[in-house]
Structures are given as C-alpha cells and as structure tokens.
Design a protein around this nucleic acid. Structure first.
Length: 635
RNA sequence: GGGCCCGUAGCCUAGCCAGGAUAGGGCGCUGGCCUUCUAAGCCAGAUGUCGCAGGUUCGAGUCCUGCCGGGCCCGCCA
C-alpha cells in the first residue's frame, strides 16, 4: 500500500471542522455523538460543492430562524478560514454552501492520483483481516446460466472491492456433488448419451446439460425410473464404486465448463469445495458437539419431533420471523443432519470455529495464473483455508430466511463475532423474457446459458470491430471483440442493484453504447490515444484548470476513494459501474469542448494531459481492477 | 395466517438506509455536430399522478400506517 489519500474525505472533513468549531464557539450542543452536521452534495455545483442543512435542524432546538443560525456560522468561518475552502455562502431559507478552493484542491487531487498510480482508492480498512466470499455455487449438472452468472459477477466484484480495501480474500465455490440432481445426470449419461449426440462444438457442460434436462424430463414422465435414481444415490453415498466414480467424472466435466465460462468474464476462484468432502470430513459431527455445549441446542424427548436435535430460536423473539416453530431442527430423528444443521456447521468452519479433517489439493492453474485448490480425500491438511474474520455468502434472495437462521444460530450459541461478521449478499435472479424462470429440469436455460449469450455478444462485437477498424489484423480484431463482448455482458449484470429483478433484454445485455462497458473502454482508449501523441509533458500548472468541465472531472476523480470505501463497506457494488460511467461522461464532455494537445500554452497543456491521464488511470482501476473488465488496445 | 423484496416517462434504471434547493442516467424518438486530440462520442428537444390513500414535518421519491400490483420465503425435503 503506497499511500491512502482520500481528497474528497479531506474536503468533507474541512467542512465538518468549520461547523464543529462554530458550534463550540456558540456553545450549541450536539444532539448526539454520531451527529453528522447534515452534509450533502447540492443538486447543482453552482450551489456549492458540499452543503449543510444544519441550520434547519438547529433552528428547532435553538428557537431561532435558520437563516440567522447559518449567518452566525458564516461569521465564525470568516474569522477562521480553511485553506481548501474558497468561500461559504448562506442561501435562503438557511442553506450553508461550501465551495472548494480549486487552486489548492486540483493540485492535491491530481498529484495524489499520479503518485499513487494503481493504488489510488486503496485503503487499509481490511489490512490484517481475512474474508471469505462464497459465490457461484451452481448445480454441477448443466452450464452456468445468466442468473448464476449474476451471482458470480456480484461475488467477483465483492472480492475485488474487499481486496482493494486491504482484506485478504478467499473466494470459494461450493459444489453439491451428492444431491439427487447429479444422480439424475449419471442416469442420463448411462441411458441417453447415445441419443444425444455430442457435436464437436459442444462444451462438456453444455452436452451434459442437455442430457440432464432430457433425463429429468424422462423421469418425470416415467415415475418407475425413480428406483434407479435412488439406487445411484445409495451407491454415491457408499463411495468407492463405479457409480461414485462416474459421478465424480461427470461433475468434474461440468465444473470445468463452469470455470471456463467464468474465466471468460475474468472471474476466478481460490477453492472449490465438494459437499462430499464436507460430509466425509466429520465436520458436522465436530460442529454438532460444539453446538450441544450451548443451552439452546438440545434433543427433543417427546412429541412430533421426538429424538430430533434442535436449536431454540426463541431468544430472538417467538416465533422468529415467519418460522412456524420456535426451534429449527439440526438433526433428524434418524440421526441425519438437516440442511440448516450442515449450513451452520459450514459457516462455523469458515470462521475457524470447527476444523474437521478437511484435506486439499491442487485442482489446476487458472487463466490468470492463480492456482485453484479443491477439497479432496487424497489431499493434505492446510490451515490457510477457512479461519476468516468475515464471511460474505452470495446467495439468491429466496434463501434470505435460511441464511438469517444460520447467522442467528451463531449468535444464540454465543459466537457473537461470527454472527456480526456474516453477511448474506442477496440478489434477485435473472428472468427469461415473458418472466420465465431459468430451470434446469425444464431446459429453459438452453440458448440463454452464459456461453450462448457471450457467443452472441462476441459475434455482434466482431461485426462492430470489422465495421469500425477494418484495417487491423484478424487476430487483434478477435481479441478486441472478446474484451468488448464479455465486458458488455459483465457490466450489464453488474450495473443494477442486486435486489432488482433482471428480465433479459438482448438489446440491453449486448449493448455497446450508452450505459455500458464499451462506453468506458472507449473513453480510456480515446485518452490513451491522445497521450500517445503527446510525446513530452511539460511543467503543469493545475491552477489553470478553470473550465467547469475540468472542475467537474477533478471533483469526480477526487470522490473515487470514498466511493470505493462506501461500495465495499455497504456491499453496494453497483456504485462502481455508476462511478465509472459518470467519470467517463465528464471526460467526454470536456473532450468535446476543449483541446488537450493544442491547449493555449504549455503549462495548461501539461495540466490537461495529467488530468486526462488521471481519468484514464482511475477508470482503469474501476473497470479492470474492481469490475474485472479488460481494456482493449484499440476500438 | 406471518415474514422479506420490488413498483420512478413507451421500455430499463440511479436516488430511499442517514428527509432538503429545478427527481439524475440510458434505450427508443426529433433535430444538430466528424477539413482540429477516435462520432462505441457530444449538444439541444419532447416524454414523469416517483403504484394508490392518509399521516409526520417548515420541507416527503426518501420516514410511518393502510391498501393495490408483481416476485419470493415460512418442512425431520434438498
């Protein structure tokens, strides 16, 4: 970490100091210690860079008109001015508007950005702490569809953001290789792989997905096939037989496909976790023995749930949320753990509250060079996994209640820290046109799986590149088209807030104009093109950057560190795409208005060159480092 | 029956948690800008009962209550 300058934060602090000292001066008391002086960004920069509505709030308590309170604050300020503040205006009926002293601020902002380089926006919030981000966790029976991709994109950005603010991040992908669905896949592979031809262009996950869907439909039609599925499930549980080997082989084929798809969007993982290994590691048994130490976890002796081990949720109020009973069953009367039980145990493992006999080995090397590990019976113990200080689970919104139950259970059992540091990053699924849900069983995913969307985007991007840059060679064209296509799709999944349902709209998903990744990519390429023509940069005089388009850019640039921090700490990852769009737009407005290379004099030319360099650099951090979208060399 | 989420122009969306000054963008539509740094861009224009009704407040898209519409969840299943 080089340095951690947050210019906007510094300006805001200056404003707070002005208000604070005036309060002290007038002997006004603050209503509470978190009192924030109601500082906000005015609707128009003509009304200041920051403003405060404190006078309205204080008016009630002091029984004085807002305008007179504001005037008193202004008077105090004028006796003790701040070097970053140009002036303070009092506006009817009582606003206090603070204006930045740009001659000082521009220099601070631009020098900070150019000095810090790629670390601009970094901070030390998470230094020395580890966070686990679990995402994707798709059923390994079919290719990833756009909904799962949204999960992956969301998780990926979360991981990148948390890394940016200093956390040691471990990205996990949890695979259910024991469920009924994989048994159905295995049955299909044995009985239907003859009729569903594997065409050369099919990826394994796509082909097996077709088989899975066909098998699921067949089984639905002929319930008598249920017997075979049960048989396969039994064999899978026993392990060490032809069925368990087959399932492992098929699941590996599918997951490799998932990883390839994710890699197309620059999404990578640190650890694959197989449910089978969790079950065999004895994790649940160990966790359960710890759970039983809590007075709220006990065996029910009689009644309909006799012989079940449960956790009493009534300390949270009875009944908790919409649960029908005041307790949740952790172990069934037949001694088998429930999903809730397993989830609690796994969450405990993530925090290092249960160790179990989990072993790890190398799965492979990813496109970005990072090694991907997996759990395995044949691996070795490795204490570097798990033991997190904070856990983010990126899981669909429909699991809001079960996730809450898991976290609340930690609290009830006395793991207060683990409870406080568990976060369910919930998101709405992607819907097919006409509000049809993605379904593996029904096969509605076919044609809308992530690879298909990316392929279609690639084809359209290629046409665009062909049209706009016919002179460049084919290899480069392909490379550029790929970056544009995957960027467009990833950005589409990233720009909406997670609780909004996305109904697939091809025009929006594969959009190269407007609020899109290519718009930002184009802006960076455009700046790089100017910079490459600049040859020399003289001595800049930043105080010459006086045009409102230049000021707008500097103001926006300076907000980057605080935006990153806010996005990471409040999990509002879509703030980053929006930030990039806003900054790119401000640059483009400036670009059309003022010349850079042919600026009136050398000092201004140098200042503008550094200004646009700072824009390109910040956009690159936002787009490439935080959203994980590459920048083409040419567009 | 209970709980959670969403409802902002023809379509998509930001703003809502921490209430303030003319509700920001994008797509689409109309018109303009490539003999000066890449037009995947920029400028101008039209399009809004912020789901509805109350309430709190000097002030409500934002907070509270009720309702309407849409999605989801409430199992010894996974």
């Amino acid at each position: 970490m080089v340095s951690l300058v947050d210019p906007w934060g510094i300006f805001k602090k200056s404003v707070v100091e002005v208000l604070e000292s005036s309060f002290k001066n007038n002997n006004w008391s603050k209503p509470d210690k978190d009192f924030n002086f109601y500082i906000e960004v005015p609707p128009d920069s003509k009304l200041g860079d920051l403003s405060s509505t404190i006078a309205f709030k204080a008016a009630k308590i002091l029984k004085e008109k807002p305008i007179s309170i504001a005037s008193k604050i202004l008077r105090d300020y004028e006796l003790n001015p701040n070097k970053l503040i140009e002036r303070v205006d009092v506006v009817e009926p009582g606003y206090l508007n603070f204006y930045i002293k740009w001659s000082e601020y521009s220099k601070l902002v631009l020098e900070t950005i150019l000095n810090e380089g790629d670390s601009y926006g970094s901070s030390d919030v998470g230094v020395g702490k580890k966070v686990i981000v679990e995402h994707t966790s798709a059923n390994p029976t079919k290719p990833i569809h756009l909904g799962t991709m949204r999960c992956a994109v969301l998780g990926d950005i979360t991981a990148r953001l948390l890394r940016k603010i200093g956390y040691n991040v471990e990205v996990q992908n949890y695979m259910d290789d024991l469920g009924r669905q994989v048994a159905v896949l295995a049955w299909g592979y044995q009985n239907l792989s003859g009729e569903i031809e594997k065409k050369p262009e099919y990826k394994d996950d796509y082909w097996l997905g077709l088989i899975y869907t066909a098998a699921a439909q067949k089984i639905e039609e002929k319930p008598e096939l249920e017997e075979s599925i049960k048989n396969i499930l039994k064999k899978m549980e026993e392990g060490g037989n032809e069925y368990s080997d087959l399932v492992q082989k098929l699941v590996y084929m599918v997951v490799k496909g998932h990883l390839e798809t994710a890699a197309r969007m620059n999404i990578f993982y640190d650890l694959l976790i197989w449910e089978k290994d969790i079950v065999r590691s004895g994790l649940f048994k160990e966790a359960l023995s710890k759970m039983l130490k809590s007075p709220h976890v006990y065996r029910i002796e009689e009644g309909e749930d006799a012989n079940c081990i449960v956790i009493d949720m009534s300390p949270l109020g009875e009944p908790y949320k919409s649960l029908k009973k005041s307790y949740k069953i952790l172990v069934r009367s037949d001694g088998v753990s429930t999903y809730t039980g397993k989830d609690i145990a796994f969450q405990m493992w993530k925090f290092g509250l249960a160790e179990a006999d989990l072993k790890f080995r190398v799965f492979g090397v990813q496109k970005n060079g990072r090694i991907l590990m997996e759990t395995s019976q044949d691996g070795e113990a490795n204490r570097s996994f798990g033991h997190a200080d904070k856990v983010v689970n990126v899981i669909g919104y429909e699991q809001a209640l079960p996730q809450q139950v898991v976290y609340q259970a930690l609290k009830i059992m006395g793991y207060e820290e683990a409870y406080k540091n568990s976060y369910h990053l919930s998101f709405q699924w992607v819907w097919l046109p006409e509000q049809v849900a993605f379904s593996g069983r029904k096969g509605t995913w076919i044609g809308f799986h992530a690879d298909a969307v990316l392929d279609k985007a690639l084809q359209l991007a290629m046409e665009e590149v062909e049209k706009r840059n016919p002179e460049i060679d084919l290899e480069l064209k392909k490379k550029i088209a790929e970056v544009i296509a995957s960027g467009a799709v990833k950005f589409y999944l990233a720009k909406y807030s997670p609780e909004k349902k996305i109904v697939i709209d091809w025009k929006e998903a594969i959009n190269f104009e407007g609020d899109s990744a290519p718009y930002i990519q184009y802006t960076i390429v455009r700046i790089n093109s100017i910079l490459s023509k600049a040859e020399h940069i003289g001595e800049p005089d930043y105080s010459l950057l006086k045009d409102e388009t230049e000021i707008d850019i500097i103001r926006e640039l300076s907000k980057f560190p605080s935006t990153v921090k806010e996005a990471a700490e409040t999990y509002q990852y879509h703030l980053i795409p929006h930030y990039c769009l806003t900054l790119a737009n401000k640059f483009n407005v400036f670009y059309h208005k003022l010349p850079v290379l042919k600026a009136e004099n050398d000092a201004l030319r140098a200042a503008r060159l550094n200004l646009i360099k700072a824009v390109a650099q910040t956009l690159k951090i936002g787009l490439k480092d935080l959203i994980g979208i590459d920048i083409p060399v040419k567009m």
